[in-house]
Amino acid sequence: MEHSSRAERVLRGVLITAILVFFLFPILWIFLMSFQTNEEVLRIPPSLFFKPTLINYASLITGKLQTAAGSLDLAFMLNLWNSVLLSTLSVALSLLLGVPAAYAFARFKFRGSEDIAFTLLSFRFAPPLLVLLPLSLYFQDIGLNDTYVGLIWVYQLIALPLILWIVRGYFEDISPDIEYAYRIAGHSWLQTFLRIAVPLARPGIAAAGLLAFIFCWNNFVFALILASADKQPVTVGALAFVTASGIQYGQIAAAIVLSITPTLALALYAQRYLVEGLSLGAVKG
């Protein structure tokens, strides 16, 4: 890189800035919007200078939305709590089921193993709406409609294939000899799985878990159809900002900022596991 000329370096800097502005500006703008009143947001021309207000956050947290037409109840904090609950439990269940399954698919060649793995992936082929219609009928019959259990179950369609396929690849990359060495040293199959395979696949499990969490968090259509108001996550709850007296841009922006926060925090936390090297130089290549 030290051979690049001054012009090249300047050009590279300009391009990187342009790309960053392109991708980050909307987020910055939303962040700024969340501190403005609706009137300031809708002002033409828009301005970077305004008197920041916390009214949007206040109304989200208290659940009272003051509009020109009067006061309106908002269930945003409940929505946020639902999102946290649904995504966390879904991903936890998926990890609990998916990681051992991924290990089985990676290590044991049993009859139909490839077919089963492919079938699990194929859940993601069909558009969700195609699955949803029969699903909502079934769910009404067996009483899972509008329950957390039902939603978490359906969220497995999103999270499980993702975790299964990503983590499987990581398990396959671990030299089987490392696991054999631990077993021959006198440890059971289960101990080997828990103390060797899982720690070594941790970057993959972290990546898959994070992705699954993001996909669950951002899911809209499952919750829209299968859940009623008190079980709905933020993605569906955001519809409430489109009110009879207009669209509440300020609140929407504040809601977006609040709903990005948990995912962002999780991503930052998972980052240290993501960057861990995989095999860490144990096996002579």
Binding site: S175, D177, I178, Y180, A181, Y182, R183, I184, A185, G186, H187, S188, W189, I196, P199, L200, S279, L280, G281, A282, V283, K284
Partner: peptide, 19 residues
Amino acid sequence: APERRGIGIAFQNFALFPH
């Protein structure tokens, strides 16, 4: 089962536990 054989083994590729 391998864990019941009371064997010590060294693999050609070492197979150390990297973590």
